[in-house]
């Protein structure tokens, strides 16, 4: 047995890989569940039925998937240009912060559109810092985006413990509730809010951008080979900055939608790591814009189905996180077999 490089990338392996990876992680998590005393088949059945078997489950699936679709895009778009945006989490928090500021101080019929625009601008601004550092000084964007997350997260934490703490919150680290004009409308007596539709709209616009425009073409070239792009006269630095700005803006909108659609107030820990989840979501979709919807829904399903498991078997949420991590690990590990094969 030895390992040999493939001369050609295998198409069959490439396309079946995500499914095989998910299957493999199902088996592994199954073993894990079996160890904590849960019948895995029954558990998977409960996850499915609780998610897809009721109006509530389905609406929650979409509600949970929405921020994941947006952060998935926020990672995927810079990734198309060959950049790692690890900072979607921070960009999301900055969007949430400015949207709350508007909601609490400038209540008006136009609050919602203003919140959207400002959240996008603040998210983009937060992404602009690492983008310009990368373009000008080749500073590694992985480190700068990652570190800026903590600044944003603790900035919001500071605000809700201090200046923005509400008057009617019994000393909890929350802001006051938003006025109704600053909350996204909900449908069907569920938490399904307007932001869900907007997220899908953004996916569609981005799909067209990368499919149809000359900007999208340039991004693809830079992502495929930055040096060839340079030789062809494409301004790589501009592309770095633009893709990061778009990614940051979309993450900012995700933050706005979370507080205006779900929480209706600013508080610490508004995101259970949606920004970070965007990374495996984008990887799973291989940077394909439309596939982001599918991979985000898969992660959304893991969240919803996971809480079903929690309530039914009272197993720890950690198992859900392990499930998610294993999916990612199997996919990245599986990439190996696209490029190499085992021969006897």
């Amino acid at each position: 047995m030895r390992i040999e490089r493939r001369e050609e990338i295998s198409k069959i392996v490439l396309y079946s890989l995500p499914f095989l990876s998910i299957l493999a992680s199902l088996i592994f998590v199954g073993i894990l569940l079996w160890f904590v005393g849960v019948n895995p088949i029954e558990a998977y059945y409960i996850m499915l039925i609780r998610t897809f078997g009721s109006k509530l489950g389905l609406s929650e699936l979409f509600v949970k998937s929405t921020p994941l679709i947006l952060t998935g895009l926020a990672v995927a778009i810079p990734m198309r240009a060959g950049l790692w945006n690890i900072g979607a989490e921070g960009q999301l928090y900055m969007g949430a912060f400015i949207a709350s500021f508007v909601a609490l101080n400038f209540a008006s019929p136009f609050a919602i559109p203003i919140m959207f625009v400002l959240a996008a601008i603040f998210g983009a601004a937060w992404a602009f810092i690492p983008a310009i550092l990368k373009a000008k000084f080749e500073l590694n964007e992985i480190i700068s985006t990652l570190l800026l997350n903590y600044v944003a997260i603790y900035w919001v934490e500071y605000l809700v413990y201090g200046p923005m703490r509400g008057k009617n919150v019994y000393n909890f680290p929350y802001s006051d509730l938003f006025p109704e004009c600053a909350t996204l409308p909900r449908f069907f007596d569920t938490r399904l809010h307007l932001g869900v539709i907007i997220a899908f709209l953004i996916v569609f616009i981005m799909y067209l951008t990368f499919r149809k425009t000359s900007f999208g073409f340039s991004v693809n070239v830079v992502g495929a080979n930055p040096r060839a792009a340079e030789y062809a006269g494409i301004d790589r630095k501009k592309i770095i900055v633009y893709t990061m700005l778009i990614g940051g803006a979309i993450a900012g909108i995700a933050g706005m939608e979370e507080i205006s659609g779900i929480h209706h107030r600013l508080r610490a820990a508004i995101s259970p790591g949606y920004g970070y989840a965007g990374i495996p979501i984008s990887l799973l979709a291989k940077g394909n814009i439309l596939a982001i919807i599918l991979s985000a829904m898969l992660f959304g399903f893991l969240y919803v189905g996971g809480s079903a498991l929690q309530t039914t078997y009272s197993i720890p949420i950690a198992v859900v996180y392990i499930f998610q991590s294993l999916v990612v690990l199997f996919i990245i590990g599986g990439e190996f077999f696209v490029r190499y094969r085992v021969v006897r």
Binding site: S214, F217, N220, V221, N225, R227, Y231, A232
Partner: peptide, 22 residues
């Protein structure tokens, strides 16, 4: 390394410099 983006298609590589005219 500099002449083509090997992951992209024949059309895309032929248009590497001129796509903006389209």
């Amino acid at each position: 390394g500099s002449g083509v983006a090997s992951k992209l298609s024949v059309v895309e590589n032929l248009m590497l410099r001129d796509f903006e005219n389209y």
